[in-house]
Amino acid sequence: MHIDSNTYLGHWPFAPLPSYTAGKFASHLTDHGIQQALVSPLNAVFLPDPMPANRKMFTAVKPTPALIPVPIINPTLGTWQDQIDECLHLAPIRAVKILPNYHNYRLTHRQFEPFMETLATNKLKLILNVRLNDERTQYFALNLKGVPQTDIAKFLKHYPTSHPLLTGIFRPELKQLASQCENFSADISFCEWRNTLVDLLTVLPPQRLLLGTCSPLLSTRGQVDKLNLAGIPKKSKTLIGSTNAKRFFHL
């Protein structure tokens, strides 16, 4: 059984997606061989303050232990410390997710210094989401580009002791980044080419790749099959499918 490092719960206004409750979403994931999933609130993507969406998500997933809540934090808001404190109070969180492009800030923002210190102090992992959909196909009312790969490289070099998980990164971006930095892991949700994982393992060790489906925005079955049917050693599949997530998130 797999662990999915990149899922969402909530409303996405640009596609007629199934409206999942936490329980139904967990069942859907189980049907595709996913036993546990790190889940973040989609509604936080479009809220100026993500906390109302985080609170709803904590409540929603509480009866569903297969869904591990990952709140979305905006480190550039004056209340970022309050956001983290409240999340720590509400649930035993293991990571926080940031969406720089959706929340309109750069990774060079001055508040990242204390933000990164706070994450380290609280032993919280950082998930840096690069994109939620392909810029070439997104709805015209959502005219956004992914977080620039050059910004991510600078960020990783500026915080050499950190080791964030990058979600939603494209395959060419990931390969380019892999040649520049080692202090990151990445999910495979937006990496795709013929024999994707065979290709990625030429530049990254299997210990730094995690299964992420970006469900329910992308097809869970398609994303899981990318791993299940990959022509890579079984040991690597296990690492990518679950072992790395267990280690990364201390599950």
């Binding site: 199934p18 595709h32 795709e192 080419w193 013929r194 024999n195 994707t196 097809s219 869970t220 079955r221 398609g222 994303q223 899981v224 099959d225 990318k226 299940n228 049917l229 990959a230």
Partner: peptide, 18 residues
């Protein structure tokens, strides 16, 4: 659209469709 896409994914999206 092989090799630009992965066939396991493109088939999986059909197999997983409602």
């Amino acid at each position: 659209d092989l090799p630009i896409r992965e066939q396991s994914v493109t088939i999986g999206r059909i197999l997983g469709a409602r």
